[in-house]
Computed example of a mutant assay.
Amino acid sequence: MDSKDTLLQLSKTMPKTELHLHIEGTFEAEQMFAIAQRNQVPLKYQSVEALKAAYQFTNLQDFLDLYYQGMSVLLHEVDFYDLTMAYLTKVHEENVVHVEIFFDPQGHLSRGVAFETQITGIYRALQDAQQQWGMSFKLIMSFLRHLSEESAFETLELAKPFLNWIDGVGLDSSELGHPPEKFLRVFEACQALGLKVTAHAGEEGPPEYVWQAIEQIKVDRIDHGNRALEDEKLVAVIKEQELTLTVCPLSNLKLCVVNDMTDHPIKDMLALGLKATVNSDDPAYFGGYMQANYNALINDSDINKAELYQLAVNGITGSWMDQELKYQHLDTLKSLFS
């Protein structure tokens, strides 16, 4: 049996992918404070230390309040570039070789920040990371589910001049009361444009929301999916369709989706043959980036070498990267674990 130290070292050296990451959720307190000062945007916190203290929230609403406060300082293309590049630099140091990141245009459009301003800053950082480090990427435009279908359609219209930069669309924000079927027509329009589709489902919402994501929205991937395990038939369908689950361990712990990391269902998902992956969600707020999530699973959930390998494999095969790149990273993984 391999020691935890061996597994931790393997997790650090193996090529990793991140498939569930909200770029606005990577806003570290120091950077938020600095950009707020640069743009002369008042925050209700008088110092970085006071802002950091606010990061110790205890419920979803406090997190969302802080999350949207952070977004308010992003006004110019350079702000979106700096935010994205700071994240990419961190995960490059953790041997993340491929990222698929969400951005929330509606959260910025409502503040008068143009779609072009947002996406140009984000995309330029992604291109620079690819050029500097060979990090591949996909960009996912996410719709906010607490807003209307009409707002989502308006956002899609604004996105059309930039479709060559956008690889897929997602659905995030408060899940309860906003089932996937609310956005059925929007996702049909996105698929007609050739975009991949994913949706947050089964984090706080019931298994029914996962059913809707699969049967009505026809998702290519499921974000979170924890509560799918409550329904055996649903598990069978997810397995049959080989749908990837983008699981976020530390996020689940911080938002009390699980009470303790020892209770995390990711081992059960693997045992059931589901394509679970490890991701960080909103790492600045939820306790850490990719390596911290792997560390937590190894230290507290007792995943073994075979499970660690499978999680890494799932992250590669479940990504939307080119097939040739997948083979390269899978070969690297295989040699590391042999």
Score class of each variant (00 low, 15 high):
residue 50 A to K: 15
residue 28 E to T: 15
residue 103 F to K: 01
residue 74 L to M: 14
residue 33 F to N: 06
residue 82 D to W: 00
residue 63 F to P: 01
residue 92 H to L: 11
residue 54 A to Y: 07
residue 78 V to K: 15
residue 91 V to F: 06
residue 25 G to M: 15
residue 51 L to T: 06
residue 114 A to P: 06
residue 99 V to I: 03
residue 106 Q to L: 14
residue 34 A to R: 15
residue 53 A to F: 05
residue 85 M to Y: 14
residue 68 Y to A: 08
residue 31 Q to K: 15
residue 120 T to G: 05
residue 78 V to F: 07
residue 84 T to E: 02
residue 87 Y to S: 09
residue 50 A to V: 13
residue 39 N to V: 00
residue 42 P to V: 01
residue 77 E to I: 08
residue 115 F to E: 00
residue 90 K to Y: 05
residue 50 A to T: 08
residue 18 E to Q: 07
residue 121 G to T: 09
residue 99 V to Q: 04
residue 32 M to L: 11
residue 56 Q to A: 09
residue 107 G to Y: 05
residue 67 Y to D: 06
residue 69 Q to K: 06
residue 58 T to P: 02
residue 71 M to C: 14
residue 53 A to G: 04
residue 72 S to R: 12
residue 35 I to G: 05
residue 59 N to L: 13
residue 77 E to R: 08
residue 68 Y to T: 15
residue 71 M to T: 13
residue 23 I to W: 01
residue 76 H to D: 11
residue 102 F to M: 15
residue 34 A to Q: 14
residue 107 G to V: 01
residue 29 A to G: 07
residue 50 A to I: 04
residue 99 V to A: 08
residue 64 L to A: 05
residue 71 M to Y: 11
residue 87 Y to Q: 10
residue 70 G to N: 11
residue 56 Q to M: 01
residue 36 A to W: 00
residue 63 F to Y: 03
residue 80 F to M: 02
residue 39 N to E: 11
residue 95 N to Y: 12
residue 26 T to I: 11
residue 91 V to N: 06
residue 89 T to I: 11
residue 45 Y to N: 00
residue 79 D to K: 03
residue 58 T to M: 13
residue 110 S to P: 00
residue 18 E to F: 10
residue 120 T to S: 15
residue 52 K to D: 12
residue 111 R to H: 11
residue 116 E to D: 09
residue 67 Y to F: 14
residue 47 S to T: 02
residue 114 A to F: 05
residue 55 Y to M: 03
residue 97 V to P: 04
residue 37 Q to P: 06
residue 114 A to K: 14
residue 66 L to F: 04
residue 89 T to M: 03
residue 64 L to F: 04
residue 83 L to E: 01
residue 58 T to F: 08
residue 90 K to C: 13
residue 107 G to R: 13
residue 20 H to F: 11
residue 22 H to I: 04
residue 26 T to F: 07
residue 94 E to D: 01
residue 53 A to L: 13
residue 56 Q to W: 02
residue 95 N to K: 06
residue 44 K to V: 01
residue 52 K to H: 09
residue 30 E to Y: 02
residue 46 Q to S: 12
residue 29 A to N: 07
residue 94 E to M: 09
residue 94 E to R: 01
